[in-house]
Design a protein around this nucleic acid. Structure first.
Lengths: 337, 337
DNA sequence: CTGAAAGCGCTAACAA
DNA sequence: TTGTTAGCGCTTTCAG
């Protein structure tokens, strides 16, 4: 059961290497009979082509790189499924690379991509990313890149996002309608565009409903779960504690709930909560969680589809090819009875 | 900012290709001064090596393949982090391949690996996998492979698992001690070794506590969430409905809770629930969920460490190198007050 | 329809 | 210490 290369396969068949190669690639130059023989023998000898040899020769890897902050996150893992579904159809492989929210990791990964590891890139930037030269460089190098979810505004390429501003607005308005007048906003980054758009949606809603903005209700969380928990707890311990919370990112769900429990605050009576989250368990939390649910699978799918359009047609420009796929506010027990 | 290859780099430096190559690989044959010059120029010209060329030449890819059923699952995403942490240290890349619980996908992926895409494999088999020739073939082909979590008993190679039998036993005993006498067991596969070991642990506990086994309490779930929900609902609607449930896999958590809610069954009063689960939200569910929490990160890490030992030392045999890392029963509200 | 041969970018044996 | 060269496995002209 040893692995065989194309030369040994050709030898076995009494054919030339090139004929075998063409037969394997279903070339029109080869007779049906020969193709059949080649395929049959290839199967019998357990021939599996070396992808690196083809990549090297053809200067294309048949790989796309997916660079995301984290895989232990419902949004990203669902997005991966969306991406995969189209990559598979196109005969491509997906290289999942995790930045763990570190700018340095992100830069290293993208840099490596310049060596030809991938033919195109789908990127959701890390929370630390404030400066985007590493991304522009990659694109200048000829690698098509599509942002999804977390984009860099000042890089000119396709961006697949959701309606961050509008959903945050909706979430805030919803809390206001549920009689919240002291609403906290938990951000994960001062630089991330999605964070800022969500923050702006929140601010706009407050302004439209004539609620004054209080800076102490705007919390910038870190990447450390324990520290976030303490931060949220502190927020909920102050004199004028909020009666509504918007968590702009899924991983803040648990610390928020834990803090409420620790402080014996009743949800939704004392505090109402909305999270940007794709957690499957949202419906069975205590109480069930009102969410802004993002179209994760679809965003991944759309981003990948766009990337492949660029891959298949070098004239197709990704600039201005932006798509905004709306999220849904799902009202549950954490904001109503 | 165009990408440069080693020949152009050599040209620029007035050196030969091989000198440059050796300098880049920090060979002892090259003077410090030359190394410095090469590195400096490489950085200036934005040289990034083509990994496929080195792979082809060196017949090693510096990639390990991680084959798992699903990425939208806490256990697997945490395990990935564990695997990644050691791969990174070793200068390897991780190729994550998803089978989506399909045997056919699994076979295709492993087959492709024979082409040289990866130097070693970490595998958690699909729920459909009953027959393991595709795995033995791969190993016979010279690729080191380590199972983690879901192994094939009859394939001789390292297996990193958790104490499935014992944890299921503990979970069952716990339910019995909480006065459950009609305990259902939700399996996801009749063939998967983990499923069977968990089932056996359950059966053993019943036997030890002199509770008779009732086949109608042993439910084999499918891969379809909706269908599982209906199955569980049906289970809970019968005359002698169970007063305890053990879900042998994380993704059954939501359907179990939903079914209880739909049928207005109070947890833990009417039914007590334990799930094999690494859900971060277990503690904030309604009610908080008693779990068997698996050492996901550590299992991934251990599996990867073992694989690298085999990769670094071709004399090291993976046979009989099995590790069992214990899980923890975390008692919460779904089984007690 | 089939085959010979060049070469993708890199490494390493061997020569100098 | 540096350079020459062959070749990893494959695809693709180009010639037959």
């Amino acid at each position: 059961m040893k692995n065989i290369n194309i030369r040994e396969l050709a030898l076995e068949l009494n054919l030339s290497v090139s004929t075998v190669s063409k037969a394997l690639n279903d070339s029109y130059e080869i007779s049906e009979e020969t193709k059949r023989r080649v395929l049959e023998t290839a199967a019998r000898l357990n021939y599996v082509p070396n992808p690196y040899a083809s990549s090297l020769r053809g200067r294309k890897s048949k790989n796309i790189g997916v660079v995301i902050p984290e895989v232990a996150d419902s949004f990203f893992s669902l997005a991966i499924n969306g991406i995969e579904s189209v990559a598979k159809e196109k005969g491509y492989h997906v290289l999942i690379c995790l930045t763990h929210e570190s700018f340095e990791n992100e830069r290293t990964i993208l840099k490596e991509f310049q060596g030809g590891r991938v033919d195109g890139v789908l990127l959701s930037v890390s929370r630390e990313t404030t400066q985007c030269n590493h991304i522009s460089d990659l694109i200048a190098n000829g690698l098509p890149l599509v942002f999804f979810d977390r984009a860099c505004d000042n890089v000119e390429t396709a961006k697949i996002t959701t309606d961050d501003f509008e959903s945050a607005y909706k979430a805030t308005a919803h809390l206001i309608q549920q009689n919240c007048d002291q609403i906290a906003f938990l951000s994960i980054s001062k630089s991330l565009s999605i964070s800022n758009k969500r923050l702006e949606g929140y601010l706009q809603a407050l302004s439209d409903y004539q609620i004054k903005v209080d800076q102490k209700y705007i919390i910038h969380c870190s990447n450390d779960a324990e520290q976030n928990y303490l931060l949220i707890k502190k927020l909920l311990q102050q004199k004028n504690k909020p009666n509504g919370i918007i968590a702009s990112v899924e991983k803040l769900t648990t610390p928020v709930y834990m803090a409420c429990e620790a402080l014996k605050l009743k949800v939704p009576k004392d505090v109402k909560i909305v999270c940007f989250s794709n957690l499957e368990t949202a419906a069975i939390l205590n109480p069930s969680l009102t969410t802004i649910t993002q179209p994760a699978f679809e965003m991944g799918k759309t981003a990948a589809t766009l990337l492949f359009r660029a891959l298949e047609n070098r004239n197709f420009s990704l600039i201005k090819e932006d798509f905004i796929i709306p999220s849904t506010l799902v009202v549950r027990g954490s904001t109503s009875h």
